Simulated scan of single mutants.
Amino acid sequence: MDRLVYTAMTGARHVLDQQATVSNNLANATTTGFRAQLDAFRAVPVMSEGLPTRTFVVDTTAGADMRAGPIQTTGRALDVALRGDGWIAVQSADGSEAYTRNGSLKVSENGLLQTSAGQTLQGEGGPIAVPPDTTVAIASDGTVSTISTEFKPGPSNVLGRIKLVNPDPKSLVRGDDGLFRLNSGTPADNDPSVRLVDGALEGSNVNAVDSMVNMISLARQFEMQMSLLKNAENNAAKATQILALS
């Protein structure tokens, strides 16, 4: 009985973990540039003196779904989407370099170019500062230029170039803040082949229908594990009755 309880318990616990992952994906179905998290079950044999007939269930993070999301035209000058593979380099809260597909940009109170989540964009020469009373334009290669609104026609001034990278997807790991980093901890090199689409944003690559079906399937698996635990409880009760009669 105890063996059945332990094996069913591991299955139920990791089903709940995967339910949390699917729920997080569904919650970010409309988040700009979000990459769906992928999980998988794997069986770990129980090492004992008996026959190898029992296994524990372990939930492993397989990584992230790196397929591109749909590109939606917004017409906003500070909205950019990545065409194909690639990442935008930003500065995370701890000061390290991280990468995102969120191209919804803004100019902070200090004049720094940032994402809508507040991460400062990394330029090839450092953060990009935008002077006041200017209109920002972003080219397909990431070059940021401004035109003064005080003069008509105003002169164009190149401020810098956004750092665009394209590392191997297998070398990227997702952090708790939703940003990706190299598992080596070192900054990625610039990739001049990465291109941007101005006036557009990339949507989440989460398929809401598939996620809902997956959530229903996980709920059925959890019910099965609960049935096993209930059967173990009934078996223990019957065994207790038999021992009491004897």
Rank of each mutant, 00 (worst) to 15 (best):
50 G>I: 03
118 G>C: 01
203 G>L: 06
176 D>G: 10
31 T>A: 13
164 L>Y: 05
185 G>A: 14
29 A>Q: 09
237 A>N: 10
85 D>N: 12
125 G>I: 01
227 S>G: 13
125 G>V: 02
233 E>A: 13
234 N>W: 02
213 V>M: 11
79 D>N: 15
106 K>S: 09
4 L>D: 02
28 N>F: 07
140 S>T: 12
144 V>Y: 14
50 G>L: 10
54 R>T: 10
11 G>M: 03
199 G>H: 07
141 D>P: 15
98 A>P: 01
192 P>I: 03
217 S>G: 06
190 N>W: 04
198 D>S: 15
90 V>W: 08
149 T>R: 08
235 N>G: 05
102 N>Y: 01
54 R>K: 14
159 L>V: 04
126 G>D: 06
186 T>V: 12
63 G>A: 11
124 E>M: 12
54 R>N: 13
48 S>K: 08
10 T>A: 00
186 T>W: 01
156 S>H: 04
243 L>R: 11
65 D>T: 11
184 S>E: 07
159 L>G: 12
229 L>K: 02
181 R>D: 06
118 G>Y: 02
103 G>Q: 09
75 G>E: 05
101 R>V: 03
109 E>L: 14
71 I>Q: 07
193 S>M: 02
2 D>N: 12
143 T>K: 15
167 P>R: 02
64 A>K: 15
139 A>P: 00
106 K>A: 12
129 A>V: 05
137 A>M: 07
55 T>M: 13
160 G>C: 06
151 F>E: 01
100 T>N: 04
186 T>L: 11
174 R>Q: 12
17 D>R: 12
41 F>V: 01
230 K>I: 00
230 K>A: 09
194 V>N: 07
76 R>K: 08
154 G>V: 02
160 G>K: 04
183 N>V: 15
20 A>F: 02
151 F>H: 03
24 N>W: 02
160 G>N: 05
66 M>P: 00
72 Q>L: 06
187 P>Q: 05
208 A>F: 08
99 Y>R: 13
142 G>W: 10
71 I>T: 14
175 G>R: 15
119 Q>I: 00
156 S>W: 00
235 N>H: 05
190 N>L: 08
141 D>R: 15
80 V>I: 13
92 S>W: 05
228 L>W: 10
181 R>E: 04
71 I>K: 10
12 A>R: 02
177 D>P: 00
103 G>T: 11
188 A>H: 13
144 V>W: 14
117 A>W: 01
60 T>P: 00
31 T>Q: 12
214 N>E: 07
120 T>H: 07
90 V>I: 01
208 A>P: 03
63 G>K: 12
195 R>Q: 08
231 N>E: 07
53 T>P: 01
35 R>K: 15
69 G>M: 14
47 M>S: 09
30 T>V: 01
100 T>Q: 03
179 L>T: 06
106 K>L: 06
157 N>Q: 14
233 E>V: 03
10 T>K: 00
192 P>G: 07
194 V>I: 06
120 T>D: 09
182 L>Q: 15
24 N>S: 08
29 A>N: 08
209 V>D: 04
201 L>M: 04
60 T>K: 04
137 A>N: 09
173 V>W: 03
200 A>E: 05
147 I>S: 12
54 R>E: 13
183 N>P: 04
162 I>V: 06
